[in-house]
Amino acid sequence: MNETEKRSLNRRVYEGVFRALVYASALVTVALLVVLIGYVFVRGIPYITPQLLFTSPSAIKDTIGILPNILNTLYIILFTLIIALPIGVGAAVYLTEYASNRRLISVVEFATETLAGIPSIIYGLVGMLFFAQMLGFKTSLLSGGCTLVIMILPTIIRTTQESLKTVPASYREGALGLGATKWYMIRTIILPSSLNGIITGCILSIGRIVGESAALLFTAGVGTAVSASILRTFSRSGGTLSVALYMYVSERGEFDVGFAIAAILMVLVLLINGAAKLAGRKLKNKA
């Protein structure tokens, strides 16, 4: 075997090994997902019963129901979005339309990046110290919601900013040229044109809220009481689905209930991902 042949053999081995690694990795990733989803569904779906879905847990009857947790999840999503959406969109508008000081913009962007990198357990602790103790909200849905507002702010700011950047400068010039004031232009031209991006931000945020547990454990707590009045609901401790999963599995060893909740969460994740994709595609078509 001469030198050239040897080198070409080496190259063929290199080629083969790396090609195999690339395919194997992609396969592992897909297989992981399929196995995870399949396992959770197989173990969880048989235990999703009407009783589980539509009742509150009862110590007397010794039954477990996750209705309160479902409601708490919905409440906290609504609350968080209602507060975080205006602030986040406003911040994005400020960054792209108003701010002219480059230093200030980069500081705000750095702060946003930093917020995105802070782990949820730290949000939980600060939420507990600030909202629950300092402001006196106690361990309640209100504390949890306020904590999540800060947590999802970066997601909303970033996606809104991305879509604001795709609004053509000619729209702005056109509006201002016709004599519109800045606020009028933002209200009637800029925000409607970037609606898809804002919706994408909302969907991603919902995904984060649904999956969140560490930030809620010490702020919203694990309560399962249902009350008719919204005010009372928000002033009381309330566990979301993810928190309930953790509690049932870790504290009570109810693994079947855990898998049932996990299956529900997986369905939600699938739906949310699909919705985000759809909104993203719409955004792309427009741009």
Partner: peptide, 19 residues
């Protein structure tokens, strides 16, 4: 394949913990 990666990112950490 890409949606699979995105879905992996979306799975809540408690579900990973449970599995």
């Amino acid at each position: 394949v890409r949606p699979a990666v995105e879905l992996l990112a979306g799975i809540p950490s408690v579900v990973y913990g449970l599995i």
